[in-house]
């Protein structure tokens, strides 16, 4: 286990360096002078421009700029947004909202995926299973923003069961609708994964062993079938959690959820390239670490890795 964790941690280092480098390089390669955009249509005086260039280390070679940037990131300095606020400050404010939204979505997704996937897998080829598979195909095909608009229009506007947009304090009750939308869009994959692994597990020799030693079905299904089938599902839901943590950009934007994703959404809409990049860098870092956590969770669930 220790060895597995160590190896996994070591693998993260090149990924972190690689992703930040990649993103930073894209900004570097950005056409046009980033400083000129600061001034909009005005032509700045060359001396000031020189001074700013030195201040932002733009006169240094690329690799030095990157290392300086990396050093800043390590100290929690991710730069400043277009509105003059530090990116880290915006993150501190928006992150808790995104976290709550992600928790709602992931819990719903997991419960739905496991319950429906299990029932469907056990009733393979029956009516329920077939209907369920078709619904899941449709859910897989509906883009998230279409789903979000439909929910907003029918549930929020037509029926008035929920506020179509979330208010500034983002209470749990208002996060429920966007949470359901996110859960539905993610659910189909996890459900199919659960279903497929339930079916595979049911045909495993050890399930036969469990029956042959006299265990009743009500024990074999949860202890031997479900427990084993959960490993891929939980891993997938964990990865989804990572995606949500870095902000469900579109969903947060549509429902006006004051989370990380919405901050990025606004930045994109206002064409604030550098700010978008700062956010994305932080998001990728979070994503990498959530995925690391998922891998460790996987190891915890599977004794073959735990006792390596």
């Amino acid at each position: 286990m220790i060895r597995y964790i160590l190896r996994r941690l070591l693998q993260v280092i090149p990924v972190l360096l690689g992703t930040t480098f990649l993103i930073y390089y894209m900004v570097f390669a950005m056409p046009g002078d980033p400083l000129l955009t600061l001034f909009g249509d005005k032509t700045p005086n060359p001396a000031l421009l020189e001074q700013l260039r030195a201040q932002y280390h733009l006169d240094q070679p690329f690799i030095v700029q990157y290392l300086l940037y990396l050093g800043g990131a390590l100290r929690g300095d991710f730069g400043t947004s277009y509105s003059g606020q530090a990116v880290s400050e915006i993150l501190a404010r928006t992150f808790p909202v995104t976290l709550r939204l992600a928790v709602i979505a992931v819990v719903l997704e997991l419960v739905l995926a496991v319950v429906i996937g299990l029932v469907s897998g056990l009733r393979k080829g029956k009516f329920f299973d077939n209907i369920n598979l078709i619904i899941s195909l449709v859910l897989l095909s509906v883009p998230i923003f279409v789903l979000a608009f439909l929910a907003q229009y029918f549930i929020g506007i037509k029926l008035g069961w929920a506020r179509p947009t979330v208010s500034g304090s983002a209470p749990w009750s208002e996060l429920l609708l966007p949470g359901i939308v996110l859960a539905l869009s993610l659910y189909a994959t996890s459900m199919r994964l659960t279903r497929a692994s339930v079916i595979t597990t049911m045909n495993q020799d050890f399930v036969r062993t469990a029956y042959s030693k006299g265990l009743p079905r009500r024990r074999v299904i949860p202890v031997h079938v479900l427990r084993n089938s959960l490993i891929p599902t939980i891993t997938n839901v964990g990865t989804d959690f990572g995606v949500l943590m870095v902000g469900a950009t579109v969903t947060e934007g549509i429902f006006n959820v004051p989370g990380v994703g919405n901050a990025v959404f606004q930045a994109i809409r206002h064409s604030q390239g550098p700010t978008v990049v700062s956010f994305v860098t932080v998001m990728v870092l979070i994503y990498v670490f959530v995925n690391l956590g998922v891998d460790l969770l996987y190891a915890l669930l599977d004794p073959r890795i735990r006792y390596e």
Partner: peptide, 12 residues
């Protein structure tokens, strides 16, 4: 490295 950046984010 490329896998660690969700592709929508990267495209954005």
């Amino acid at each position: 490295i490329f896998f660690s950046i969700p592709y929508i984010l990267a495209a954005v």
